[in-house]
Design a binder for these strands. Structure first.
Lengths: 196, 196, 196, 196
DNA sequence: CATGAATGAGCATTCATTCAT
DNA sequence: AATGAATGAATGCTCATTCAT
């Protein structure tokens, strides 16, 4: 087994342990036991417990970052499919690896102020991207008036919560269904009430 | 100072410490120092660290639960204002005490599997309430077709994320503005794109 | 038992353990076992292992510093007795507590660069004091010509080695005898050989 | 590179590492990195860390032992130069390799009780040799009355301390000057005070 | 009731040494 | 012989909790 494999072996077992027990309850012992290596071996491949956790989260960030495509608003008739495709890719990236999704949406939250800052930064980046697209869309009339930043935040929140519920509760929704529901939610909301 | 006051004094200082440092970084020492009582006194009023944390979260649950009013869909012309009032009350309850909101949305997440279950349960209860109203609304034609459960989850997520950003980043939005944006988001979404 | 006593109890047992095993071989467990307290109690009174060791050495420094009296060379007829008195006090200070002397002359040496610097600094201070007295004495004709600094260094070395041997080998010399021998050694050397 | 060379290469790099960091702070990793060999190779040539350290100290002992010449007191007119020559050889042996001198006078001290015993034994051997010469000298009238053992101990201490200061502080004394000062110190002391 | 000194289980991390290749 | 990945015993330190005063 070469170094990369061994590293991957520890990393993936650590991921499972973190997902199962949560960051603090996950002991180095649990990780090495799961990986079937000695205590010291762990430290041959990773600086410390925090470092391997961060690597898992960073990896998820990277996967998510790659999933997101820039929306080209040039041809209005293609916007919808691009947005759907983006939602589809993000949902897929999160659901194909429920363990890291659980870690990202649960264990990584409130770990400590420094880590909170890291998460906030990631979501800020994604939020900015989204916000930019929304502002762009507003100029082209394909996004409603309103605070684009707030729209972006709520969009992220809605998707995060849905993914969290799916992952934590094992909600059995087909991905395509999830994509469709999200799109509908973003496109038209659901309240049909008249003004007071 | 009577028992109740003393208890409250410890509780409220603990809340600040948890909010500032996070659950794990908050030491009993920090709490008793903030409350100005002796180490042992803490244990006269609370079972253990976990218990006081849980009490804080439970208190927030209770406050939130009280904030939510049942929507009477009898007179369609009054539904909108009732919904707005609900959003207003929830937002107000969260923002009037940012410390507990931060704890609820950050420290309480991923604490351990048992606590995750507790949170999940609370959100499930709220979600069911909301889902029920949505189904009810669907029957009366004031809620669009679609999966009410998913709508409920995304609604919760959108609101949680917005509150989280306000609390963590100190976003300076007037409450009324937030309420209006949320309502608009839920009512009409923002995408105005034609089908492919 | 009040805090000062408890502290002293741990300190003095630590001193014995350090003297017996040496700094590195002395484990916190050995110290607390000797003191009859729990592991955590140790850390209630001392920052860490290094700190208690440093305190022991600093205490010895202080005792030694107090033992040394400034020699008043005003009345030449009184110089000899003052010097003898100084030697007597230093020798007494070291031999009345062999454990700390062993620690100072053995365990504290080569502990790490930072500690070496500390030791070097202490001996430098003592050396400067001695050197100053020697220069003063040279002006008054009661100290022979020659490099006062080297004299000071060799004097310290001679005394340190003698004390070390007494402490480590349990050499049974009466203190007064030691004082007399040191004085004679410093006063007249022992080689009686003619120049080449 | 043959076995002897490889061994020497590791040994001499270990010496530098020990001198720079001290015994405990010197890691096998540092040594093999300095020597440019693999971790396992180290153990092909040396039993363990302690063994290589001991070998370094033993080598220094051997070098020092060879530096010391027996003083032939037959012709009194030649004694002085023989003693000077001895001092010169010892000083030279120590200063030509400051790294091992630093190890001998600093890291080897207080390593553990067993090593202390070893050092004590070496100095005892040298001390006995010196003591024997002193007793011999006393019979021939070229060494003053007094306790020869104490003279021997203080002589060793004086020389050790001077060498230690030169090595640790980088004192810039020419060897010949050091030899002369030591000789003068041993021959006549420096105090010129009348009895009380 | 209040105190705070004492407790000790628990854990991350280090590093000398081994051994399969 | 040489390598360097793997090992796991060893240990300092933390901190929630207890309990005698």
């Amino acid at each position: 087994m070469d170094k990369t494999e061994r590293r991957q072996q520890i990393l993936s077992n650590a991921r499972d342990v973190f997902a199962k027990r949560g960051y603090h309850a996950a002991k180095i012992d649990d990780i090495v036991a799961a990986a079937g290596v000695a205590r010291g071996t762990f430290y041959l491949y990773f600086e410390d417990k925090r470092a391997i956790f961060e690597e898992i989260v960073d990896g998820t960030f990277a996967r998510l970052g790659q999933a997101i495509l820039r929306v080209d608003t040039g041809d209005p008739s293609l916007v919808r499919s691009q947005i759907e495709e983006n939602i589809r890719r993000i949902v897929h990236a999160l659901l194909e690896d429920p363990a890291t999704t659980k870690i990202l949406l649960s264990d990584a939250v409130g770990l400590d102020p420094a880590f909170d800052k890291k998460l906030l930064f990631f979501y800020e980046e994604v939020g900015k991207l989204l916000e930019g697209s929304l502002v762009d869309g507003q100029e082209r009339g394909i996004v409603a008036e309103g605070d684009a930043r707030v729209y972006a935040i709520m969009t992220l929140g809605a998707m995060k919560e849905l993914m969290y519920q799916v992952v934590m509760r094992g909600l059995e929704y087909p991905e395509e269904r999830i994509v469709a529901e999200i799109f509908r939610f973003l496109a038209a909301g659901y309240l049909r009430v008249s003004a007071t």
